[in-house]
């Protein structure tokens, strides 16, 4: 199965989770996701998802000037974003354990 198909459904949650402990700018978040193991995640997908989450009011953003390069737009979870992360996380937990049970049942049958 193609992981990009799976990613489409959970990219919002993945991006929110990547910002849980630390604010980050676009490329930074992409690197966190890839380091965490989501190697197939596309650059444009993360960039677009950040824009959408920001427009949906789940993220705050601020610009940090940088000496060596261009200024960076940092994104941070706001209260709504944390609530969304918690709620979607619960849904994911339920979904994942259902899938695990299902796969285990089928596997041992």
């Amino acid at each position: 199965m193609d992981t990009t198909q799976l990613l489409k459904g959970v990219l919002d949650l993945a991006v929110l989770a990547a910002l849980r402990d630390e604010d980050g700018y676009g490329y930074d978040i992409l690197r966190r996701l890839r380091t965490a193991g989501l190697e197939d995640v596309g650059d444009a997908s993360v960039y677009g998802t950040l824009r959408r989450l920001f427009n949906a009011g789940l993220l705050n953003s601020y610009v940090v000037p940088s000496d060596e390069g261009p200024h960076r737009k940092y994104y941070a979870l706001n209260a709504a974003g944390r609530a969304e992360l918690q709620q979607s996380g619960k849904i994911w937990d339920g979904f994942a354990s259902t899938m695990n049970d299902l796969l285990r049942e089928r596997g041992t049958a």
């Binding site: 700018y25 676009g26 490329y27 930074d28 690197r31 650059d43 960039y47 677009g48 824009r51 390069g69 261009p70 200024h71 960076r72 737009k73």
Partner: peptide, 17 residues
């Protein structure tokens, strides 16, 4: 405009890495 306003900075990061 809104979608691409941060794109140059973002691509610069990609290119730098």
């Amino acid at each position: 405009d809104e979608l691409t306003e941060d794109l140059p900075e973002h691509l610069a990061e990609v290119l730098a890495d």
